[in-house]
Design a protein around this nucleic acid. Structure first.
Length: 516
RNA sequence: GGCGGCAUAGCCAAGUGGUAAGGCAACGGUCUGCAAAACCGUUAUUCCCCGGUUCGAAUCCGGGUGCCGCCUCCA
Protein backbone atom coordinates (compact mmCIF):
# COMPACT_ATOMS: atom_id res chain seq x y z
CA UNK A 1 0.00 0.00 0.00
CA UNK A 2 1.21 3.43 -0.87
CA UNK A 3 0.01 6.53 0.94
CA UNK A 4 0.79 10.14 0.18
CA UNK A 5 2.22 11.65 3.32
CA UNK A 6 1.90 15.40 3.76
CA UNK A 7 4.85 15.25 6.13
CA UNK A 8 7.21 14.20 3.35
CA UNK A 9 5.23 15.35 0.32
CA UNK A 10 5.66 11.93 -1.22
CA UNK A 11 3.92 8.62 -1.61
CA UNK A 12 5.34 6.15 0.86
CA UNK A 13 4.92 2.46 1.47
CA UNK A 14 2.59 1.97 4.37
CA UNK A 15 4.13 0.13 7.28
CA UNK A 16 1.93 -0.12 10.36
CA UNK A 17 3.22 0.63 13.83
CA UNK A 18 2.15 -2.84 14.89
CA UNK A 19 1.74 -5.68 12.40
CA UNK A 20 -1.87 -6.13 11.37
CA UNK A 21 -3.15 -3.07 13.19
CA UNK A 22 -3.87 0.49 12.12
CA UNK A 23 -4.46 3.39 14.45
CA UNK A 24 -6.25 6.35 12.92
CA UNK A 25 -7.16 9.79 14.20
CA UNK A 26 -9.36 12.04 12.10
CA UNK A 27 -10.29 15.58 13.03
CA UNK A 28 -14.02 15.79 13.49
CA UNK A 29 -16.36 18.73 13.40
CA UNK A 30 -16.64 21.72 15.65
CA UNK A 31 -20.22 21.26 16.68
CA UNK A 32 -21.85 24.63 16.24
CA UNK A 33 -23.65 24.00 12.96
CA UNK A 34 -24.88 21.27 10.63
CA UNK A 35 -22.20 19.77 8.43
CA UNK A 36 -21.92 20.88 4.84
CA UNK A 37 -20.85 18.84 1.86
CA UNK A 38 -17.24 19.95 2.17
CA UNK A 39 -17.14 18.52 5.68
CA UNK A 40 -18.82 15.39 4.40
CA UNK A 41 -16.16 14.90 1.77
CA UNK A 42 -13.57 14.50 4.48
CA UNK A 43 -15.68 12.23 6.66
CA UNK A 44 -16.70 10.02 3.74
CA UNK A 45 -13.15 9.75 2.46
CA UNK A 46 -11.64 8.75 5.79
CA UNK A 47 -14.50 6.34 6.37
CA UNK A 48 -13.50 4.75 3.08
CA UNK A 49 -9.87 4.58 4.19
CA UNK A 50 -10.95 2.84 7.33
CA UNK A 51 -13.17 0.42 5.42
CA UNK A 52 -10.31 -0.38 3.07
CA UNK A 53 -7.93 -1.22 5.90
CA UNK A 54 -10.58 -3.56 7.28
CA UNK A 55 -11.03 -5.10 3.84
CA UNK A 56 -7.28 -5.71 3.73
CA UNK A 57 -7.48 -7.54 7.01
CA UNK A 58 -6.19 -4.92 9.39
CA UNK A 59 -7.59 -4.44 12.82
CA UNK A 60 -8.49 -0.75 12.86
CA UNK A 61 -8.83 1.58 15.80
CA UNK A 62 -10.51 4.73 14.57
CA UNK A 63 -10.86 7.86 16.66
CA UNK A 64 -12.67 11.00 15.61
CA UNK A 65 -13.19 13.88 17.98
CA UNK A 66 -15.88 16.44 18.51
CA UNK A 67 -14.58 19.90 19.27
CA UNK A 68 -17.43 20.90 21.51
CA UNK A 69 -15.91 23.95 23.14
CA UNK A 70 -14.35 26.93 21.44
CA UNK A 71 -15.00 30.56 20.55
CA UNK A 72 -17.37 29.83 17.69
CA UNK A 73 -19.54 27.69 19.91
CA UNK A 74 -19.63 30.32 22.61
CA UNK A 75 -20.66 32.96 20.08
CA UNK A 76 -23.27 30.75 18.51
CA UNK A 77 -24.71 29.83 21.89
CA UNK A 78 -25.01 33.52 22.73
CA UNK A 79 -26.84 34.18 19.47
CA UNK A 80 -29.25 31.34 20.07
CA UNK A 81 -29.45 32.07 23.78
CA UNK A 82 -28.71 28.48 24.59
CA UNK A 83 -26.32 26.73 26.90
CA UNK A 84 -23.13 25.96 24.94
CA UNK A 85 -23.05 22.32 25.93
CA UNK A 86 -26.70 21.82 25.00
CA UNK A 87 -26.13 23.53 21.69
CA UNK A 88 -23.20 21.29 21.06
CA UNK A 89 -25.13 18.17 21.91
CA UNK A 90 -27.74 19.10 19.34
CA UNK A 91 -25.15 19.34 16.60
CA UNK A 92 -23.41 16.16 17.69
CA UNK A 93 -26.67 14.34 17.15
CA UNK A 94 -27.13 16.13 13.83
CA UNK A 95 -23.65 15.01 12.82
CA UNK A 96 -24.54 11.38 13.44
CA UNK A 97 -27.82 11.76 11.59
CA UNK A 98 -26.18 13.27 8.50
CA UNK A 99 -23.15 11.02 8.34
CA UNK A 100 -25.08 7.83 8.91
CA UNK A 101 -27.26 8.74 5.97
CA UNK A 102 -24.05 8.80 3.97
CA UNK A 103 -23.15 5.37 5.32
CA UNK A 104 -20.25 6.67 7.38
CA UNK A 105 -19.54 4.20 10.13
CA UNK A 106 -19.23 5.46 13.66
CA UNK A 107 -15.70 5.77 14.97
CA UNK A 108 -14.62 3.37 17.69
CA UNK A 109 -14.27 6.38 19.95
CA UNK A 110 -15.76 9.87 19.54
CA UNK A 111 -14.05 11.83 22.30
CA UNK A 112 -15.22 15.30 23.22
CA UNK A 113 -13.09 18.16 24.41
CA UNK A 114 -15.41 18.92 27.28
CA UNK A 115 -14.86 15.45 28.69
CA UNK A 116 -11.07 15.52 28.48
CA UNK A 117 -10.15 18.63 30.43
CA UNK A 118 -7.96 16.72 32.94
CA UNK A 119 -5.92 15.16 30.14
CA UNK A 120 -5.53 18.55 28.49
CA UNK A 121 -4.49 20.21 31.75
CA UNK A 122 -1.91 17.48 32.36
CA UNK A 123 -0.47 17.92 28.90
CA UNK A 124 -0.17 21.67 29.36
CA UNK A 125 1.56 21.10 32.69
CA UNK A 126 4.18 18.98 30.97
CA UNK A 127 4.73 21.63 28.30
CA UNK A 128 5.22 24.28 30.97
CA UNK A 129 7.61 22.08 32.91
CA UNK A 130 9.63 21.47 29.79
CA UNK A 131 9.71 25.20 29.09
CA UNK A 132 7.76 24.91 25.87
CA UNK A 133 4.96 27.06 27.20
CA UNK A 134 4.63 30.27 29.17
CA UNK A 135 1.97 32.22 30.99
CA UNK A 136 0.46 35.60 30.25
CA UNK A 137 -2.60 37.21 31.76
CA UNK A 138 -4.50 35.89 28.74
CA UNK A 139 -3.63 32.28 29.42
CA UNK A 140 -0.93 29.81 28.53
CA UNK A 141 0.90 29.95 25.23
CA UNK A 142 3.05 27.51 23.32
CA UNK A 143 6.51 28.93 22.64
CA UNK A 144 7.21 27.89 19.08
CA UNK A 145 10.80 29.11 19.27
CA UNK A 146 11.50 26.15 21.55
CA UNK A 147 10.39 23.60 18.97
CA UNK A 148 12.99 23.34 16.22
CA UNK A 149 10.79 21.33 13.86
CA UNK A 150 8.01 23.90 13.79
CA UNK A 151 6.79 24.19 10.21
CA UNK A 152 7.82 20.72 9.09
CA UNK A 153 4.31 19.62 8.15
CA UNK A 154 3.21 22.71 6.27
CA UNK A 155 6.62 23.19 4.72
CA UNK A 156 7.35 26.69 5.84
CA UNK A 157 10.13 28.29 7.74
CA UNK A 158 9.56 30.55 10.71
CA UNK A 159 11.23 33.53 9.04
CA UNK A 160 9.01 33.44 5.99
CA UNK A 161 5.86 33.00 7.99
CA UNK A 162 6.66 35.93 10.19
CA UNK A 163 7.26 38.06 7.16
CA UNK A 164 3.85 37.25 5.77
CA UNK A 165 1.86 36.79 8.91
CA UNK A 166 -1.15 39.01 9.26
CA UNK A 167 -1.70 38.10 12.84
CA UNK A 168 -3.12 40.67 15.14
CA UNK A 169 -0.26 41.71 17.34
CA UNK A 170 -0.46 40.58 20.90
CA UNK A 171 2.46 42.14 22.71
CA UNK A 172 2.18 39.65 25.54
CA UNK A 173 3.12 36.84 23.18
CA UNK A 174 6.80 36.24 22.58
CA UNK A 175 6.19 35.42 18.96
CA UNK A 176 3.15 36.30 16.87
CA UNK A 177 2.77 32.65 15.94
CA UNK A 178 2.72 31.39 19.51
CA UNK A 179 -0.71 29.90 20.07
CA UNK A 180 -2.96 29.47 23.06
CA UNK A 181 -2.97 26.24 25.04
CA UNK A 182 -5.25 27.59 27.72
CA UNK A 183 -7.45 30.65 27.39
CA UNK A 184 -8.44 32.63 30.45
CA UNK A 185 -12.21 32.94 30.72
CA UNK A 186 -13.79 36.32 30.15
CA UNK A 187 -16.91 37.19 32.12
CA UNK A 188 -19.88 35.12 31.03
CA UNK A 189 -17.85 32.49 29.24
CA UNK A 190 -17.86 28.81 30.13
CA UNK A 191 -14.83 27.74 32.11
CA UNK A 192 -13.04 24.96 33.88
CA UNK A 193 -10.63 25.21 36.76
CA UNK A 194 -6.93 24.88 36.13
CA UNK A 195 -3.63 25.71 37.79
CA UNK A 196 -3.66 28.87 35.63
CA UNK A 197 -7.07 30.02 36.68
CA UNK A 198 -10.51 29.60 35.19
CA UNK A 199 -10.55 29.08 31.47
CA UNK A 200 -10.82 26.69 28.59
CA UNK A 201 -8.47 24.84 26.25
CA UNK A 202 -7.09 26.45 23.12
CA UNK A 203 -8.11 25.04 19.80
CA UNK A 204 -5.23 22.69 19.04
CA UNK A 205 -4.44 21.09 22.36
CA UNK A 206 -7.52 18.89 22.55
CA UNK A 207 -6.69 16.83 19.49
CA UNK A 208 -3.18 16.24 20.75
CA UNK A 209 -4.37 15.23 24.19
CA UNK A 210 -7.09 12.91 22.94
CA UNK A 211 -5.00 11.33 20.21
CA UNK A 212 -2.22 10.60 22.68
CA UNK A 213 -4.69 9.22 25.19
CA UNK A 214 -6.40 6.79 22.84
CA UNK A 215 -3.69 6.03 20.29
CA UNK A 216 -0.35 6.76 21.98
CA UNK A 217 2.71 8.25 20.33
CA UNK A 218 3.69 7.36 16.79
CA UNK A 219 0.26 6.15 15.73
CA UNK A 220 -0.33 5.41 12.08
CA UNK A 221 -2.63 7.87 10.34
CA UNK A 222 -3.75 11.36 11.17
CA UNK A 223 -6.15 12.98 8.77
CA UNK A 224 -8.34 15.90 7.97
CA UNK A 225 -9.04 18.53 5.37
CA UNK A 226 -6.33 20.50 3.64
CA UNK A 227 -7.22 23.56 5.64
CA UNK A 228 -6.11 21.89 8.84
CA UNK A 229 -2.48 21.49 7.78
CA UNK A 230 -1.68 24.93 9.07
CA UNK A 231 -1.98 25.87 11.78
CA UNK A 232 -4.00 23.09 13.40
CA UNK A 233 -1.96 20.03 12.57
CA UNK A 234 1.32 21.89 12.67
CA UNK A 235 0.47 22.91 16.22
CA UNK A 236 -0.66 19.44 17.18
CA UNK A 237 2.72 18.11 16.15
CA UNK A 238 4.53 20.83 18.07
CA UNK A 239 2.55 20.14 21.26
CA UNK A 240 2.82 16.39 21.10
CA UNK A 241 6.44 16.12 20.12
CA UNK A 242 7.57 18.82 22.50
CA UNK A 243 5.77 17.08 25.36
CA UNK A 244 6.66 13.46 24.62
CA UNK A 245 9.91 13.73 22.70
CA UNK A 246 8.46 11.10 20.34
CA UNK A 247 7.10 11.37 16.82
CA UNK A 248 3.38 12.09 17.01
CA UNK A 249 1.76 10.49 13.94
CA UNK A 250 3.53 8.71 11.11
CA UNK A 251 1.36 9.38 8.06
CA UNK A 252 -0.56 12.61 7.57
CA UNK A 253 -3.39 12.58 5.06
CA UNK A 254 -5.25 15.62 3.83
CA UNK A 255 -8.14 15.75 1.44
CA UNK A 256 -8.70 18.52 -1.09
CA UNK A 257 -11.46 21.06 -0.91
CA UNK A 258 -14.92 20.87 -2.21
CA UNK A 259 -15.50 23.95 -4.33
CA UNK A 260 -18.47 25.84 -5.68
CA UNK A 261 -17.79 27.59 -8.96
CA UNK A 262 -14.15 26.72 -8.38
CA UNK A 263 -14.11 28.49 -5.03
CA UNK A 264 -13.68 26.73 -1.74
CA UNK A 265 -16.96 25.86 -0.07
CA UNK A 266 -16.77 27.60 3.27
CA UNK A 267 -18.96 29.17 5.83
CA UNK A 268 -17.33 32.56 5.62
CA UNK A 269 -18.01 32.78 1.87
CA UNK A 270 -21.57 31.65 2.45
CA UNK A 271 -21.40 29.30 -0.52
CA UNK A 272 -21.94 26.13 1.46
CA UNK A 273 -24.60 23.47 1.04
CA UNK A 274 -25.69 21.48 4.05
CA UNK A 275 -25.71 17.72 3.71
CA UNK A 276 -29.29 17.57 4.93
CA UNK A 277 -30.37 20.06 2.28
CA UNK A 278 -28.68 18.14 -0.51
CA UNK A 279 -30.25 14.91 0.69
CA UNK A 280 -33.68 16.35 0.07
CA UNK A 281 -32.89 16.32 -3.61
CA UNK A 282 -30.35 13.54 -4.08
CA UNK A 283 -30.10 10.11 -2.55
CA UNK A 284 -27.28 9.46 -0.08
CA UNK A 285 -25.97 6.80 -2.47
CA UNK A 286 -25.66 9.43 -5.18
CA UNK A 287 -23.90 11.84 -2.87
CA UNK A 288 -21.41 9.24 -1.73
CA UNK A 289 -20.76 8.09 -5.29
CA UNK A 290 -20.19 11.70 -6.28
CA UNK A 291 -17.73 12.29 -3.44
CA UNK A 292 -15.69 9.20 -4.27
CA UNK A 293 -15.61 9.81 -8.00
CA UNK A 294 -12.55 12.02 -7.71
CA UNK A 295 -9.19 11.37 -6.13
CA UNK A 296 -9.27 12.67 -2.58
CA UNK A 297 -6.36 15.08 -2.94
CA UNK A 298 -7.83 16.88 -5.94
CA UNK A 299 -10.28 19.72 -5.61
CA UNK A 300 -13.81 18.71 -6.44
CA UNK A 301 -16.43 21.05 -7.78
CA UNK A 302 -19.94 20.83 -6.47
CA UNK A 303 -22.72 21.48 -8.94
CA UNK A 304 -26.17 20.18 -9.62
CA UNK A 305 -25.01 18.87 -12.99
CA UNK A 306 -22.23 16.86 -11.39
CA UNK A 307 -24.63 15.40 -8.86
CA UNK A 308 -26.99 14.52 -11.69
CA UNK A 309 -24.20 12.71 -13.50
CA UNK A 310 -23.55 10.71 -10.38
CA UNK A 311 -27.24 9.94 -10.00
CA UNK A 312 -27.39 8.52 -13.50
CA UNK A 313 -24.27 6.48 -12.92
CA UNK A 314 -25.80 5.16 -9.75
CA UNK A 315 -28.83 4.01 -11.73
CA UNK A 316 -26.54 1.93 -13.88
CA UNK A 317 -25.04 0.21 -10.86
CA UNK A 318 -28.43 -0.37 -9.30
CA UNK A 319 -29.81 -1.89 -12.48
CA UNK A 320 -26.97 -4.34 -12.65
CA UNK A 321 -27.39 -5.34 -9.02
CA UNK A 322 -31.11 -5.83 -9.55
CA UNK A 323 -30.51 -7.96 -12.65
CA UNK A 324 -28.10 -10.08 -10.68
CA UNK A 325 -30.42 -10.46 -7.71
CA UNK A 326 -33.23 -11.50 -10.03
CA UNK A 327 -31.05 -13.99 -11.87
CA UNK A 328 -30.00 -15.62 -8.63
CA UNK A 329 -33.54 -16.79 -7.99
CA UNK A 330 -34.57 -17.40 -11.59
CA UNK A 331 -34.97 -20.93 -12.92
CA UNK A 332 -32.00 -21.88 -15.03
CA UNK A 333 -29.53 -19.63 -13.28
CA UNK A 334 -29.63 -19.81 -9.60
CA UNK A 335 -32.26 -22.20 -8.36
CA UNK A 336 -29.97 -25.20 -8.05
CA UNK A 337 -29.05 -26.20 -4.56
CA UNK A 338 -25.95 -24.45 -3.41
CA UNK A 339 -23.05 -26.01 -5.24
CA UNK A 340 -20.16 -24.76 -3.23
CA UNK A 341 -18.35 -28.04 -3.70
CA UNK A 342 -17.54 -27.09 -7.26
CA UNK A 343 -13.99 -26.01 -7.82
CA UNK A 344 -13.30 -23.20 -10.23
CA UNK A 345 -11.15 -25.43 -12.40
CA UNK A 346 -14.14 -27.72 -12.97
CA UNK A 347 -16.10 -24.90 -14.51
CA UNK A 348 -16.77 -24.80 -18.22
CA UNK A 349 -15.93 -22.25 -20.89
CA UNK A 350 -18.27 -19.33 -20.52
CA UNK A 351 -18.42 -19.38 -16.74
CA UNK A 352 -14.66 -19.79 -16.51
CA UNK A 353 -14.09 -16.81 -18.75
CA UNK A 354 -16.51 -14.73 -16.72
CA UNK A 355 -14.89 -15.71 -13.46
CA UNK A 356 -11.44 -14.94 -14.82
CA UNK A 357 -12.62 -11.52 -15.97
CA UNK A 358 -14.17 -10.50 -12.69
CA UNK A 359 -11.26 -11.89 -10.70
CA UNK A 360 -9.04 -9.56 -12.66
CA UNK A 361 -11.36 -6.72 -11.70
CA UNK A 362 -10.88 -7.63 -8.07
CA UNK A 363 -7.12 -7.42 -8.30
CA UNK A 364 -7.40 -4.18 -10.26
CA UNK A 365 -9.65 -2.79 -7.57
CA UNK A 366 -7.11 -3.63 -4.88
CA UNK A 367 -4.29 -2.15 -6.93
CA UNK A 368 -6.26 1.06 -7.33
CA UNK A 369 -6.99 1.41 -3.63
CA UNK A 370 -3.43 0.40 -2.75
CA UNK A 371 -2.21 3.35 -4.75
CA UNK A 372 -3.02 6.13 -2.33
CA UNK A 373 -6.72 5.29 -2.12
CA UNK A 374 -7.56 5.95 -5.76
CA UNK A 375 -11.31 5.69 -5.31
CA UNK A 376 -12.01 7.11 -8.78
CA UNK A 377 -10.12 4.26 -10.39
CA UNK A 378 -11.60 1.73 -7.96
CA UNK A 379 -15.03 3.00 -8.86
CA UNK A 380 -14.36 2.36 -12.54
CA UNK A 381 -13.81 -1.29 -11.61
CA UNK A 382 -17.23 -1.34 -10.03
CA UNK A 383 -18.69 -0.04 -13.30
CA UNK A 384 -16.68 -2.62 -15.21
CA UNK A 385 -18.10 -5.30 -12.96
CA UNK A 386 -21.61 -4.08 -13.67
CA UNK A 387 -21.00 -4.28 -17.40
CA UNK A 388 -19.48 -7.76 -17.20
CA UNK A 389 -22.42 -8.98 -15.16
CA UNK A 390 -24.86 -7.45 -17.62
CA UNK A 391 -23.11 -9.07 -20.56
CA UNK A 392 -23.03 -12.41 -18.83
CA UNK A 393 -26.72 -12.20 -18.03
CA UNK A 394 -27.61 -11.07 -21.53
CA UNK A 395 -26.66 -14.47 -22.82
CA UNK A 396 -29.38 -16.89 -21.82
CA UNK A 397 -28.43 -20.23 -20.36
CA UNK A 398 -29.35 -23.20 -22.50
CA UNK A 399 -31.31 -24.79 -19.73
CA UNK A 400 -33.39 -21.82 -18.71
CA UNK A 401 -37.00 -22.55 -17.79
CA UNK A 402 -36.57 -26.28 -17.69
CA UNK A 403 -37.48 -28.34 -14.70
CA UNK A 404 -34.74 -30.12 -12.88
CA UNK A 405 -36.06 -33.68 -13.31
CA UNK A 406 -35.96 -33.34 -17.08
CA UNK A 407 -32.37 -32.24 -17.21
CA UNK A 408 -29.36 -34.29 -18.07
CA UNK A 409 -26.42 -34.42 -15.75
CA UNK A 410 -24.52 -32.07 -18.00
CA UNK A 411 -27.34 -29.57 -17.98
CA UNK A 412 -27.58 -29.65 -14.22
CA UNK A 413 -23.87 -29.11 -14.01
CA UNK A 414 -24.15 -26.12 -16.33
CA UNK A 415 -26.75 -24.64 -14.03
CA UNK A 416 -24.44 -25.14 -11.11
CA UNK A 417 -21.60 -23.49 -12.95
CA UNK A 418 -23.80 -20.53 -13.70
CA UNK A 419 -24.76 -20.27 -10.10
CA UNK A 420 -21.19 -20.33 -8.90
CA UNK A 421 -20.44 -17.54 -11.32
CA UNK A 422 -23.38 -15.46 -10.18
CA UNK A 423 -22.66 -15.97 -6.50
CA UNK A 424 -19.08 -14.92 -7.07
CA UNK A 425 -20.24 -11.81 -8.89
CA UNK A 426 -22.60 -10.98 -6.08
CA UNK A 427 -19.84 -11.41 -3.53
CA UNK A 428 -17.64 -9.10 -5.53
CA UNK A 429 -20.31 -6.42 -5.66
CA UNK A 430 -20.57 -6.86 -1.92
CA UNK A 431 -16.89 -6.52 -1.22
CA UNK A 432 -16.36 -3.53 -3.52
CA UNK A 433 -19.32 -1.91 -1.87
CA UNK A 434 -18.02 -2.85 1.56
CA UNK A 435 -15.05 -0.62 0.86
CA UNK A 436 -16.73 2.21 -1.01
CA UNK A 437 -19.84 2.16 1.17
CA UNK A 438 -22.20 3.43 -1.50
CA UNK A 439 -25.10 1.07 -0.84
CA UNK A 440 -26.51 0.13 2.51
CA UNK A 441 -26.16 -3.52 3.42
CA UNK A 442 -27.96 -5.95 5.68
CA UNK A 443 -26.41 -8.04 8.43
CA UNK A 444 -25.23 -10.60 5.88
CA UNK A 445 -23.47 -7.91 3.91
CA UNK A 446 -25.94 -8.09 1.02
CA UNK A 447 -26.68 -4.85 -0.76
CA UNK A 448 -30.05 -3.32 -0.01
CA UNK A 449 -31.60 -1.25 -2.77
CA UNK A 450 -34.67 -0.04 -0.95
CA UNK A 451 -35.69 3.47 -1.71
CA UNK A 452 -35.13 5.93 1.04
CA UNK A 453 -38.14 7.08 2.98
CA UNK A 454 -37.68 10.58 1.67
CA UNK A 455 -37.86 9.27 -1.87
CA UNK A 456 -40.91 7.22 -1.10
CA UNK A 457 -42.67 10.00 0.70
CA UNK A 458 -42.04 12.31 -2.21
CA UNK A 459 -43.55 9.75 -4.57
CA UNK A 460 -46.67 8.84 -2.62
CA UNK A 461 -48.71 11.90 -3.51
CA UNK A 462 -48.28 11.92 -7.30
CA UNK A 463 -48.55 8.15 -7.44
CA UNK A 464 -51.85 8.03 -5.66
CA UNK A 465 -53.16 10.88 -7.75
CA UNK A 466 -52.27 8.91 -10.84
CA UNK A 467 -54.13 5.85 -9.60
CA UNK A 468 -57.12 7.93 -8.63
CA UNK A 469 -57.17 9.43 -12.11
CA UNK A 470 -57.12 5.98 -13.72
CA UNK A 471 -59.96 4.93 -11.47
CA UNK A 472 -61.95 8.02 -12.41
CA UNK A 473 -61.53 7.10 -16.06
CA UNK A 474 -62.83 3.62 -15.31
CA UNK A 475 -65.81 5.15 -13.51
CA UNK A 476 -66.60 7.34 -16.49
CA UNK A 477 -66.78 4.17 -18.60
CA UNK A 478 -68.95 2.64 -15.89
CA UNK A 479 -66.30 -0.04 -15.47
CA UNK A 480 -67.30 -0.60 -11.85
CA UNK A 481 -65.33 -3.81 -11.54
CA UNK A 482 -62.04 -2.07 -12.22
CA UNK A 483 -62.91 0.95 -10.12
CA UNK A 484 -63.85 -1.18 -7.12
CA UNK A 485 -60.80 -3.35 -7.53
CA UNK A 486 -58.54 -0.33 -7.41
CA UNK A 487 -60.28 0.98 -4.29
CA UNK A 488 -60.26 -2.36 -2.51
CA UNK A 489 -56.67 -3.14 -3.32
CA UNK A 490 -55.57 0.29 -2.14
CA UNK A 491 -57.45 -0.28 1.07
CA UNK A 492 -55.48 -3.43 1.69
CA UNK A 493 -52.35 -1.33 1.38
CA UNK A 494 -53.68 1.04 4.01
CA UNK A 495 -54.77 3.73 1.55
CA UNK A 496 -58.42 4.66 1.89
CA UNK A 497 -60.30 6.37 -0.96
CA UNK A 498 -63.41 8.37 -0.26
CA UNK A 499 -65.62 9.62 -3.10
CA UNK A 500 -67.09 12.96 -2.17
CA UNK A 501 -69.17 15.52 -3.95
CA UNK A 502 -66.07 17.63 -4.48
CA UNK A 503 -63.83 14.82 -5.68
CA UNK A 504 -61.73 12.05 -4.27
CA UNK A 505 -60.09 12.25 -0.89
CA UNK A 506 -57.48 9.79 0.23
CA UNK A 507 -56.14 8.90 3.64
CA UNK A 508 -53.36 6.80 4.97
CA UNK A 509 -54.28 4.41 7.76
CA UNK A 510 -51.85 5.44 10.47
CA UNK A 511 -50.63 2.01 11.49
CA UNK A 512 -49.78 1.12 7.92
CA UNK A 513 -47.12 3.72 7.72
CA UNK A 514 -43.59 2.45 7.59
CA UNK A 515 -41.71 2.78 10.84
CA UNK A 516 -38.39 4.53 10.41
C1' G B 1 5.67 38.66 -0.53
C1' G B 2 6.29 33.15 0.96
C1' C B 3 4.43 28.19 0.15
C1' G B 4 1.25 24.68 -2.34
C1' G B 5 -2.38 22.70 -5.84
C1' C B 6 -4.81 22.35 -10.53
C1' A B 7 -5.24 22.67 -16.28
C1' U B 8 -6.98 15.52 -20.21
C1' A B 9 -13.41 14.93 -25.21
C1' G B 10 -19.80 18.69 -24.73
C1' C B 11 -19.50 17.66 -19.02
C1' C B 12 -17.20 14.76 -14.66
C1' A B 13 -12.68 12.13 -14.43
C1' A B 14 -8.24 8.06 -14.14
C1' G B 15 -3.65 7.93 -15.96
C1' U B 16 4.08 10.33 -13.88
C1' G B 17 8.16 7.66 -19.98
C1' G B 18 5.69 3.15 -24.26
C1' U B 19 1.48 5.05 -27.60
C1' A B 20 -5.38 8.05 -23.93
C1' A B 21 -9.52 3.83 -17.95
C1' G B 22 -14.46 4.65 -16.27
C1' G B 23 -19.10 7.57 -15.78
C1' C B 24 -22.68 11.25 -17.90
C1' A B 25 -24.49 13.29 -22.47
C1' A B 26 -25.07 12.59 -27.91
C1' C B 27 -25.66 9.66 -32.38
C1' G B 28 -26.35 4.75 -35.04
C1' G B 29 -27.70 -0.48 -34.35
C1' U B 30 -29.81 -5.11 -31.62
C1' C B 31 -33.91 -6.22 -28.43
C1' U B 32 -39.21 -4.30 -27.54
C1' G B 33 -46.37 -3.66 -29.44
C1' C B 34 -44.13 1.23 -28.12
C1' A B 35 -40.90 2.65 -24.44
C1' A B 36 -37.35 1.83 -20.51
C1' A B 37 -33.30 -1.16 -19.14
C1' A B 38 -29.44 -4.01 -21.23
C1' C B 39 -25.95 -5.11 -25.14
C1' C B 40 -22.94 -3.64 -29.68
C1' G B 41 -20.76 0.47 -32.34
C1' U B 42 -19.32 5.80 -33.06
C1' U B 43 -17.57 10.35 -30.41
C1' A B 44 -9.74 13.31 -27.80
C1' U B 45 -4.13 11.33 -33.94
C1' U B 46 -4.47 14.02 -28.73
C1' C B 47 -3.83 15.67 -23.07
C1' C B 48 -3.49 24.91 -21.59
C1' C B 49 0.73 27.32 -24.80
C1' C B 50 6.06 27.54 -26.42
C1' G B 51 10.78 25.29 -26.34
C1' G B 52 14.00 21.13 -24.78
C1' U B 53 15.60 15.89 -23.27
C1' U B 54 14.44 10.92 -25.37
C1' C B 55 13.98 5.77 -30.21
C1' G B 56 9.48 7.29 -27.70
C1' A B 57 6.21 12.36 -23.21
C1' A B 58 -0.35 13.85 -21.23
C1' U B 59 3.58 11.95 -18.21
C1' C B 60 10.65 14.44 -17.40
C1' C B 61 13.24 19.59 -17.78
C1' G B 62 12.98 25.13 -18.84
C1' G B 63 9.82 29.26 -19.86
C1' G B 64 4.86 31.27 -20.25
C1' U B 65 -0.65 31.68 -19.52
C1' G B 66 -5.07 30.83 -16.67
C1' C B 67 -7.70 29.26 -12.25
C1' C B 68 -7.69 28.00 -7.05
C1' G B 69 -5.94 27.42 -2.04
C1' C B 70 -2.94 28.16 2.58
C1' C B 71 -0.05 31.91 5.40
C1' U B 72 -6.63 34.42 10.09
C1' C B 73 -11.73 30.48 11.95
C1' C B 74 -12.68 26.49 8.46
C1' A B 75 -13.04 19.26 6.59
Amino acid sequence: MKIYNTLTNAKEDFKPRQPGKVFIYVCGPTTYNYIHLGNARSFVFFDTVRRYFCYRGYEVKYVQNFTDMDDKIINRAREEKEDPLLLTEKYVQAYFYDTQALNVQKADIHPKVSQHIPEIVDLIKVLIEKKHAYLTDQGVYFDIATFADYGKLSGRSLDLMQAGARVEVDVRKKNPLDFALWKAAKPGEPFWESPWGLGRPGWHIECTAMALKYLGTGFDLHGGGNDLIFPHHENEIAQAEAATGQPFARYWLHNGYLTVNQEKMSKSLGNYFLVREILKKFSPETVRLFLLSIHYRSPQDFSEENLNNAARGLERLKTSIILLQEALVRPGWGDVSRSSSLEFQDIGGREAAFLATISKLESDFIAAMDDDFNTALALSKLFDLAREVNIYLTQKPETENQNLPQLTTIEIQNKQFAQVALVKAKELFGSFNGVLGIFKTNAQGDIILERSFQERDALVEPLINLIIQLRQEAKVKKDWVSADKIRNNLKELGIVLEDTKDGVRWKLRENNRPIV
